[in-house]
Design a protein around this nucleic acid. Structure first.
Length: 752
DNA sequence: ATTAGGG
DNA sequence: CCCTAAT
């Protein structure tokens, strides 16, 4: 039986090699040869791309094939454009994961460059060890192969290696032409022919993979090369390499990066060249270290990433932190640095694959279920400090106290405290899920629901520190606040699909937590148990993370002052230090640039910086909500308004007004229906309408909050449709028509 | 000040 | 709801 290429199979490792033509020390990432090792059932497939950019393209292809559900967000080609243009502008759709993958790869790329260079002299590189034109294929050469002759370098080009043991069981299909031979000798040639370079030049064939599960646990895989789907891009150099890990593993002296959860975006309206260009913007400096082997020690599945500094002349612009040059023997810092380079929203450098099972839930979200439980106790635990400013969990960052026992490279814990261990890597699926069920490909019925708590939401903190205080003081204050909460005791809250599950007596099943269900929307929160929590309204259903306030007394030692909204600790203690220069002028592509910590830091730091920004005093209203505020300061920066859900009556009034006035005249709507309600601005009304339209267009089950009568929602849709149609007329006809027509339609609807 | 859109 | 750009 052939099953679709399993999602989990997209989990794999990516290896970079210096390509044959790549003798320069400074290379574009896109030019790096890269091999993707992915797991298909029990086999491992190696896919080699002579250019990294091909890999990305290919990923997208296969992604499309797999018809992934996507949680990706859209990165505008033109970040800011005239309103009129914004709407229709083409978008680069890029999945977060891919961004991260991309960056992860980029990080490794730099390292590999380094490695290959240093090996150029030491020749300690690949088994075949040469850093020369043939070097790249050498790197994947499988010396253990029984028929070594088959690996005639002269003829095999950079093509496929299919170890006998594996390929004999394979069931290759080549739609386009010849099937793979089952003899090693011919494997390579055929591979070359089939998926070799030239055949892709004009006629890009999609490579589709399907796993073929077999009863005897001896899974077979099938590689199908399909023709068709002409693509302008030259995919000449895609090759498939397949082999068993055992055969190849030991030969690879290259640094490996364990990459998991690779998901490629579905590209629809983006030409690939754009992406490639962006790739090309990725330039990785080659760092050199006086101490040749201080870094990049490969240990099986783990990566030890090191970053070396180079002479400033050449890469001056890149090397932002010379300090790193001192990096520790264990390359811990380097590791951290790499981590920081990564945007890794949903990414993390995965623990050993062997120790974790890739799992994914219904909507394609994947996570790792770590089998190992005895490592360092807290290993996979992450504390997430939610910022009030963030509404979406995927925008938030988890602060992780990494104790990855699986990686020796960081096994030496820094003494300096948390800071050293903090990484920002939420690894949280969009919905804010921090838990996923483990779904194995083929597993027996297991009544247990498996949870992998990747992060905790911790109570939000509010502290205050005078402007004049030092950072050190700030840190201490934060620490105090945290300690206060911890000491007061914590409770665990369970939030499922944004709703708090309060009934402790319900079973998981009853609560809707089932291993078959999508647990991505399940998360746990830590709640302070002390009672001096706000009188406020804040913790609502949709605000899983509870909020706690440090009372004035608690902070009384500190003079009253501006409020500090506590950002993630890393923001406080771990200032960005690894910014690279952006070289690329095409800034819109920078957003997908892996080596663009600036963007990412901006991305993540913006909220942080906001969080760190001094929030001046507030109005009475706000004070009511957040008791900690002092009134002594006035400020331009105002606090977020209190939430005031629209009542049904208000909605009705709004709908009525819009029906008659249309959707482009909010001021009029306001005057007509909410003239004397000053807490409803026309913007509010517009926003409300927006959400109403949205609400009306989704399934009732998806709706939250106080239910709006369907009748009203129907009217919303009707009016929305109508006014969408009649926008032009609106100005011409002013206003009489609309109402009647709308009414008529409503009546029709009702009648029907 | 309003409007339109994105977050 | 907030924030911004554009009008």
């Amino acid at each position: 039986m052939i099953s679709p290429f399993p999602v989990s199979s997209l989990t794999g490792r990516v290896l970079f090699y210096r390509g044959r033509r790549q003798k320069r020390r400074f290379l574009h990432l896109r030019n790096l040869v890269c091999v993707w090792r992915i797991q298909v059932d029990h086999d491992e497939i190696w896919i080699r791309f002579t250019e990294f950019s091909f890999f990305l393209i290919w990923l997208r292809k296969i992604q499309k094939r797999l018809n992934f559900g996507f949680s990706g967000y859209q990165i505008p080609v033109i970040p800011k454009a005239p309103r009129s243009a914004r709407k229709r502008r083409p978008c680069i759709k890029l999945d977060d994961d891919q961004i991260c993958a991309f960056e992860l790869l980029a990080a490794v790329a730099g390292k590999l460059l380094l490695e290959s260079e240093s090996s150029a002299s030491s020749n300690a590189d690949a088994p075949t060890g040469k850093d020369e034109p043939a070097g790249c294929r050498d790197t994947i050469k499988c010396e253990q192969m029984e028929d070594d002759k088959a690996l005639d370098q002269g003829s095999c080009v950079e093509s496929a290696y299919i170890p006998e043991a594996v390929h004999q069981e394979k069931n290759f299909k080549d739609v386009s032409s010849k099937p793979y031979h089952t003899e090693n000798k011919s494997v390579l040639e055929n591979a070359s022919t089939i998926i070799g370079s030239n055949s892709f030049t004009k006629d890009w064939s999609e490579v589709k993979m399907e796993s073929c599960k077999d009863v005897n646990a001896d899974a077979k895989s099938q590689i199908k090369v399909e023709g068709g789907s002409p693509n302008p891009d030259d995919q000449r150099d895609i090759r498939i390499v397949e082999g068993t890990q055992k055969q190849l593993d030991d030969d690879i002296k290259h640094t490996e990066l364990t990459v998991a959860n690779v998901k490629a975006p579905i590209e629809k309206n983006v030409n690939n060249s754009a992406l490639i260009n962006s790739d090309s913007s990725v330039q990785f400096p080659l760092y050199r270290d006086p101490v040749p082997c201080a870094s990049f020690v490969k240990s099986r599945n783990n990566v030890k990433l090191g970053v070396r500094d180079d002479d400033e002349n050449y890469f001056g612009c890149y090397r932002r932190s010379t300090k790193i040059r001192t990096f520790k023997p264990t390359s811990h810092i380097a590791y951290r640095r790499i981590r920081k380079i990564l945007t890794s929203r949903h990414w993390k450098v995965a623990p050993k694959l062997k120790d974790c099972e890739s799992s994914y839930s219904n909507d394609g979200m994947k996570s790792f279920y770590c089998k190992r439980k005895n490592t360092h106790g807290n290993e996979s635990r992450r504390l997430e400090v939610p910022s009030k400013r963030r509404k979406f969990c995927d925008h938030s960052f988890a602060v992780a106290y990494v104790q990855e026992a699986s990686s020796e490279s960081i096994s030496n814990k820094p003494e300096k405290g948390i800071k050293e261990d903090i990484i920002t890597s939420p690894a949280v699926p969009p919905k804010g899920a921090v838990v996923s069920a483990s779904v194995r490909n083929h597993q027996k019925e297991d009544p247990n629901v498996k949870f992998s708590i990747k992060s905790f939401k911790v109570p939000e903190l509010y502290i205050e520190v005078p402007e004049t205080e030092t950072i050190g003081s700030l840190k201490r204050t934060v620490m105090e606040a945290v300690t206060a909460i911890l000491e007061s005791g914590l409770r665990v809250g369970v939030v499922l699909q944004g709703k708090k599950v309060r009934d402790d007596n319900r079973t998981l099943q009853q609560a809707g937590i089932s291993k078959n269900d999508n647990l991505d929307t399940l998360c746990f929160t830590l709640e302070p148990s002390f009672s001096k929590v706000p009188l406020s309204l804040s913790p609502k259903a949709d605000t899983p993370a509870s909020t706690s306030y440090i009372t004035n007394q608690e902070l009384s030692r500190r003079p009253p002052s501006p409020i500090l909204e506590l950002g993630p600790p890393n923001a406080l203690s771990d200032p960005p230090e690894t910014k690279l220069d952006k070289h690329d002028e095409s800034n819109h592509e920078l957003e997908m640039s892996p080596t663009n910590p600036i963007d990412q830091s901006a991305d993540e730091a913006v909220p942080d910086s906001k969080a760190l920004a001094i929030v001046p005093p507030v109005n009475a209203e706000a004070l009511a909500v957040v008791p900690v505020y002092h009134k002594n300061r006035h400020s331009e920066l105002s606090k977020r308004r209190t939430r005031r859900p629209f009542s049904i009556a208000e909605v009705e009034a709004l709908v009525e007004a819009v029906e008659q006035l249309g959707t482009g005249r909010w001021r009029d709507v306001k005057m007509r229906a909410f003239d004397n309600v000053d807490h409803r601005t026309y913007v509010d009304l517009k926003d409300k309408w927006k959400t109403l339209v949205h609400t009306a267009s989704i399934a009732p089950q998806q709706r939250r909050g106080e239910p709006v009568p369907q009748e009203l929602l129907d009217r919303v849709l009707t009016a929305h449709a109508y006014w969408s149609q009649h926008q032009a007329k609106q100005h011409a006809k002013q206003l009489a028509e609309p109402l009647k027509i709308v009414d008529a339609q409503v009546q029709n609807d009702v009648a029907a």
